[in-house]
């Protein structure tokens, strides 16, 4: 299982999303490899990903992908992350 978190600069917000997605997955008892990257690299980095996590502001920039794109509103809300990941992965 590969999950990619996306932000504009590839640092900062995607890093926070990665850390908290790992916490949510731990709660769900799901193993996954999570990579933080930027929008410009998403085509390459997420080519073999099952899930892309990002902000509502960046969804339109992701382009074509086979991954499920999950939009997270509050990056600090582990409940939101766990609920959305559970739906996507369940």
């Amino acid at each position: 299982m590969k999950i990619v978190t996306i932000c504009g600069a590839g640092i900062g917000t995607s890093g926070i999303l990665k850390v908290n997605a790992e916490r949510a997955l731990e709660r769900l008892d799901i193993e996954a490899d999570i990579t933080a990257t930027d929008v410009a690299s998403v085509g390459v980095v997420a080519a073999d990903a099952q899930v892309i996590l990002t902000s509502p502001e960046l969804v339109d920039r992701i382009g074509k992908t086979n991954a499920d794109v999950i939009v997270i509103d509050n990056y600090f809300d582990i409940d939101e992350l766990a609920a959305k990941l559970e739906i996507a992965l369940g």
């Binding site: 504009g8 600069a9 640092i11 917000t13 926070i16 929008v39 902000s55 509050n74 809300d77």
Partner: peptide
């Protein structure tokens, strides 16, 4: 510039923005 280019995605929680750019 990051926000002008990519929008308000740095607003990652209600009422909170994490302003940043690349190294």
């Amino acid at each position: 510039g990051v926000i002008e280019e990519f929008g308000a995605y740095v607003v990652i929680a209600p009422g909170f923005a994490l302003a940043h750019a690349r190294p």
